[in-house]
Design a protein around this nucleic acid. Structure first.
Lengths: 227, 227
DNA sequence: CCCCTTTTTAATCATTTGTTAACTGAGGAA
DNA sequence: TTCCTCAGTTAACAAATGATTAAAAAGGGG
């Protein structure tokens, strides 16, 4: 899963240079050459990182940056400012607008790559700290959402807990008793058959037509989450 | 950038002890020995935290605290009350005036430091930005106004705080308990169901006909602000 | 004392949960 | 192979849980 880098820059030569290099690094790259469009695109595409020219037609990089940093939905997308002048004053101003890093043209591609990598490393875990994935299943414990192949799935509380438990140790087989203890709680009494019922409900919710089912039944032993 | 602690206390020995210790911890410290002056100074200097004696000449700590908590500009400066008597009754009264914590003399410097640190940690991130946006919601913490799609919305104080809290971590699901702790305060007891009522009022206020609602209910988990 | 906000309460509404019982199918024994 | 048994599957339903809502009560400030 490669990161998506957005370039807001009006000089075509720089864009193509950046694009070439970034794609070689394995990033998905898109770009825009004027400020107004850039802002629109960014909000639409929600890239993982932005390279932004200091000066842009229509809407300056500074303005875009300020705008993004105000909005909680976009304010943790890291921004690297590109500028022609190497003055300290501008650098300070750039940080002031909320830019996360600052590079003066001409810049070495190698250095830029390093900075990009560093910013991405910094921002990724923030947004995915409590997100667990297993094959095409993704569960987000913060927002309490579950996805299969990036499509959201709605689960009842118990099914959510059940899946959350399975995903901690995929492929491991759990007996009904273990499931009851871990998902329902130690000192709560429900019938063993109840587990079957919830397994069924979970299966129905996460299954996709013509795909091999994710939950395996192990006769006289229990259930497990399989890939 | 060190925090600024204000001491309102008339016993010189205590002041110098506190001052010595707090400065060693790296805080900027200022103080006043009478109530009236203290209030003036606080409004002038806007410290990050206040240590206030229960009894003060001119204007009691209780009065100052009440006064501050009424004013939007100062009501999130955390206040720790210092008092000689260790009586529960006073403790309740202190919280009643809006104090955030309560320490009885004689106190251990270590404990006081811990409490200061905890209160500062809690209040700092609040001062992130004066205007915050999330999608088409905008909230201005200075003027205490809220806009949806650039149209102003009027909210009661609690609804404002609630939305303000949600907007700090959009999409994150908060339990009723978390909401009570963070919006109402740690040491105030109201029924869980009260949260629902305020959620409802907030929903009614910020909703727009034929648009998907902004506040999501997550059964048996809580609520979250969605885009 | 009046007005506005908050909190409580209780009725209602919606979803989830556990249970039951009939059904299905795998696997072993004859 | 056929049949039998046992474990797992499934659907239907009743009970419980949790959320919404409206309305009344309680505070608090001007």
């Amino acid at each position: 899963m490669s990161a998506h880098v957005f370039i807001a820059e009006d000089e075509a030569s720089i864009v193509s240079l950046l694009k070439y290099n970034l794609e070689k690094e394995g990033y998905k790259v898109s770009h825009s050459e004027n400020g107004e469009d850039a802002l629109k695109q960014i909000k639409l595409k929600q890239p993982d990182l932005i390279l932004m020219d200091w000066m842009l037609p229509e809407l300056s990089g500074v303005e875009i940056c300020k705008n993004l940093k105000k909005d909680n939905k976009f304010n943790d997308i890291p921004v690297i400012m590109l500028t022609a002048k190497g003055e300290e004053e501008d650098k300070l101003k750039a940080f002031d607008t909320g830019a996360d890093d600052y590079v003066t043209k001409p810049f070495s591609q190698k250095e830029l790559n390093a900075r990009i990598k560093s910013l991405l490393r910094r921002s990724k875990p923030q947004s995915s700290s409590d997100i667990v994935e297993f094959t095409d299943l993704k569960i987000d414990r913060i927002t309490k959402r579950v996805y299969r192949k990036d499509k959201e799935i709605t689960l009842g509380p118990t099914e959510f807990k059940l899946l959350d438990f399975f995903i901690k140790n995929p492929k491991r087989v759990y007996s009904r008793e273990q499931l009851l203890n871990n998902v329902w709680g130690e000192n709560i009494y429900v019938e063993f058959r109840t587990v079957d019922v919830h397994i069924r409900r979970l299966r129905q919710a996460i299954n996709i037509q013509n795909t091999k089912p994710l939950i395996r039944t192990v006769r006289s032993a229990g259930y497990s989450l399989e890939s």
